[in-house]
């Protein structure tokens, strides 16, 4: 079980890194949220995934003998909620960029960091 989770997390991180290195902005955003998904999976794996036992303390016992550690699940839920809002925001951001500039190429995004002039000096700017 733990091996399956580890392999899945590794594969997802790989996919996420690959996508986020792309020049296409949408892929970058999807890549970053994939890395977030992998982080959630790792967090879940830290619950010592042993089997399908529910995290319930049986009657007459005082501590959790079998079953998953419930805390990572709470953490994952929080992380999912936060990650979801972040993904929403970044998607809207990319959509807005695509509409303003008619371009989704990351290399063409030089509005905040203009290229140096031909003489190698920074361009005159900052009149905005």
């Amino acid at each position: 079980m733990i091996w399956a989770l580890a392999l899945a997390a590794g594969a997802i991180v790989g996919a996420g890194v690959y996508l986020s290195l792309s020049r296409h902005l949408l892929r970058v955003v999807v890549g970053v949220s994939l890395i977030g998904a992998a982080a959630n999976l790792v967090l879940l794996a830290m619950a010592r995934a042993t089997g399908p036992e529910p995290p319930v303390i049986r009657a007459g016992e005082v501590e959790l003998a079998a079953g998953l550690d419930p805390l990572p699940q709470a953490l994952v839920l929080t992380a999912i909620v936060i990650g979801f809002s972040l993904t929403c925001f970044s998607l809207v951001l990319v959509l807005a960029i695509a509409q303003r500039t008619r371009d989704t190429d990351g290399d063409a995004l030089r509005a905040a960091e203009p290229h140096p002039d031909r003489d190698g000096k920074p361009p005159v700017e900052g009149d905005a």
């Binding site: 986020s20 902005l25 970058v28 970053v32 890395i35 977030g36 992998a38 982080a39 959630n40 790792v42 967090l43 794996a45 830290m46 990572p72 953490l75 992380a79 972040l86 970044s90 951001l93 990319v94 807005a96 960029i97 303003r100 500039t101 995004l109 030089r110 509005a111 905040a112 960091e113 905005a128």
Partner: peptide, 27 residues
């Protein structure tokens, strides 16, 4: 404006990666 959105995107990618790595390390 485009330069604001551009700046926001560049800020987003590395910082989001930072928080996600933090989450991984916490895990």
């Amino acid at each position: 404006e485009p330069r604001h959105l551009d700046a926001a995107l560049k800020y987003f990618v590395l910082n989001a990666l930072g928080t996600l790595l933090l989450l991984l390390a916490v895990g």
